[in-house]
Write a protein that binds this DNA or RNA. Structure first.
Length: 556
DNA sequence: GCCGTTTTCGGCCCGACTGTTTTCAGTCG
């Protein structure tokens, strides 16, 4: 029976094909909105489909309901099948190439018979695109570059995707009778921002029996003591098998650290342990390093402060900062977000919806900011948690924020972020960011590099100079925990900490569910050795207020 | 196709950028 994931995929695929077919763009959007509505819905989808109560979800009207009900009952969708009949296969992949939309793809198909990425690449190399009307040499080169990028991207998945997938496999496999112990290792244990391999160390007393049991659930290949699952996974799923319990921790140690880290440790014969990894570090006379920090960058740090282990954990978090609501482009209302934040144990929260120039995200005009303020005042007394009104204010091309200085005084907390004009020259972009950081109202520099992992490169700017400015103006640097961003990149955290910067780890949540992204931000921060004393979200309410009040002094 | 409603049809995100063109279409955030 199809689940939530399958329904979302179906609706999005239908939207793509409708768009290719030149359907009314609003109809196309209705399918995309529907997919998003289901993605963001907290209601258990299986249950309401059975009860035929899908109309409870806003954005799912009669048309989408019938598609979903049919899909549930028959496992098929006649609407989708009909579209697939008239639209060439491979179009979905072509739509993923930046710069190619449905119109251009249609030209490529009708003029050159191109219906998949392979054919497109070949046509570019044959110089056939450059000769096509509406295209040119520049477009052709751009497409070639995009295809190359996608080839690299396709070797990786985002951290949250890997996390979910690894949990699914772990759940299945931990029921095995022949298995004594299993722990994840490698990139996932180190909390890398993107993952090329999901790996586990497994201890099985009887390997033969284990493989026989594994065979009942998974198809796999075996080489030496490494088992790799086959079939349909986006990245390799690997099990390192040990058959003696005292080999377990050694294998875990060797497979966790990056190759460079392990090589530099030069552990040699010291790698022996019966208990846990602390023993190995002790044997080689090296102070223990947490899994996340076992990277080559560890050895590049000169200052001893930067080599200390991070003590950061979710238990230290008191403030939920930078999340969105239905006032701008999120799926849940202010009340819903705040209620959940309180349930999760946060002591204070700062809503940061999009600002007025973010028109595409329904950003808040001055009037709507004041309406939100009224609502906050109205509901404040019904929560134990303290609510601050923040804003994610767009940094304009000039480096100004998009509200007047007078008006910015209305907010308790100001996050400044770039959402447009990414293609500026490095020097100009650096100036723009520094000006925003120097604004006396700015408390936080949001997703500093603007990157979207496996999708969009960061914009060009002098990272050190911008970090220096944050340090000089006591502006916190965001470690955006959304798995698409994980920005600031952890490799820059060391420099920022050298400059005594403060950090803010934020889910950038667009729904109640997204609040859990914080854990990926914590992993990222831990990679840079961040201490909880350096994170404003970990401040007590009183100290967070003090942090906010520093701007009064700044503006005087 | 969905929503909201002056309940039956009009409005739905719009402006900047890019590469093409020679004044604009297509794509993106």
């Amino acid at each position: 029976m199809p689940g939530k994931k399958e329904i979302i995929t179906l609706l999005e695929d239908i939207a793509d094909l409708l768009e290719y077919n030149g359907e009314n763009p609003f109809k196309v959007n209705a399918f995309r909105n529907g997919a998003n509505a289901i993605r963001r819905s907290e209601i258990e989808i299986n249950k309401i489909v059975k009860e035929k109560a899908l109309d409870k979800i806003k954005g799912i009207g009669k048309g989408l309901q019938s598609v979903i009900y049919e899909f549930y009952e028959t496992g098929n969708s006649s609407a989708y099948d009909e579209l697939k009949r008239v639209v060439p296969e491979g179009i979905n992949d072509l739509l993923k190439i930046r710069g190619l939309g449905s119109k251009k793809i249609k030209i490529l198909y009708t003029e050159l018979g191109i219906s998949n990425v392979g054919e497109l690449e070949y046509a570019c190399k044959e110089n056939r695109l450059a000769l096509l009307k509406g295209f040119g040499e520049a477009s052709q080169n751009k497409i070639i570059a995009e295809i190359e990028k996608q080839k690299t991207y396709s070797k990786y998945i985002l951290l949250n995707t890997a996390d979910t997938l690894s949990e699914e496999i772990l759940e299945k496999i931990s029921k095995f009778n022949t298995l004594s112990k299993i722990v994840h290792t490698g990139e996932l244990r180190r909390g890398m921002e993107v993952i090329s391999e999901i790996a586990f160390v497994v201890f099985v007393p009887d390997k033969k029996k284990f493989l026989a049991e594994l065979k009942e659930t998974f198809a796999f290949e075996e080489r030496d003591d490494i088992v790799t699952l086959k079939n349909g996974y986006p990245v390799p799923i690997v099990f390192f098998i040990v058959i003696k319990e005292d080999e377990f921790c050694k294998k875990l140690f060797l497979t966790t650290g990056s190759k460079e880290f392990i090589a530099k440790l030069n552990a040699g014969a010291g790698i022996k342990c019966a208990g846990n990894e602390h023993e190995i570090f002790k044997n080689i006379d090296f102070s223990f390093v947490i899994p996340e920090m076992r990277e080559k960058e560890y050895f590049e740090q000169k200052k001893s402060k930067l080599k200390e282990n991070s003590d950061l954990s979710i238990d230290h978090f008191k403030g939920l900062l930078h999340f969105h609501t239905t006032y701008s482009d999120a799926g849940n209302s202010l009340k819903e977000m705040i209620t959940d934040a309180q349930k999760e144990g946060f002591e204070y929260a700062a809503v940061c919806d999009h600002s007025k120039s973010a028109v595409y995200a329904n950003g808040l005009s001055e009037g709507r900011v004041l309406l939100q303020k009224q609502e906050i005042t109205k509901i404040a007394s019904s929560y134990k948690l303290h609510i601050f009104q923040g804003i994610e204010s767009d940094i304009l091309q000039t480096g100004d924020l998009d509200y007047s200085t007078d008006f910015l005084g209305n907010f308790d907390f100001v996050a400044a972020s770039i959402h447009s004009r990414f293609n500026m020259e490095e020097a100009e972009m650096t100036k723009r960011l520094i000006k925003a950081v120097e604004n006396p109202y700015t408390d936080l520099l949001g997703h500093p590099s603007g990157r979207l992992l496996l999708s969009r490169d960061p914009y060009k700017f002098d990272v050190k100079k911008v970090i220096d400015a944050c340090s000089a103006n006591s502006v916190a640097i965001e470690i955006n925990a959304n798995p698409h961003r994980l920005d600031l990149d952890w490799r820059w955290i060391f420099y920022a900490r050298e400059k005594d910067c403060l950090f803010s780890i934020n889910p950038d949540a667009h729904s109640v569910e997204d609040i859990s992204y914080i854990k990926y931000g914590i992993l990222t921060a831990r990679k840079g050795g961040v201490k909880n004393s350096e994170v404003i979200n970990c401040f007590s309410l009183e100290n967070f207020k003090k942090f906010l009040n520093r701007k009064v002094k700044r503006s005087v």
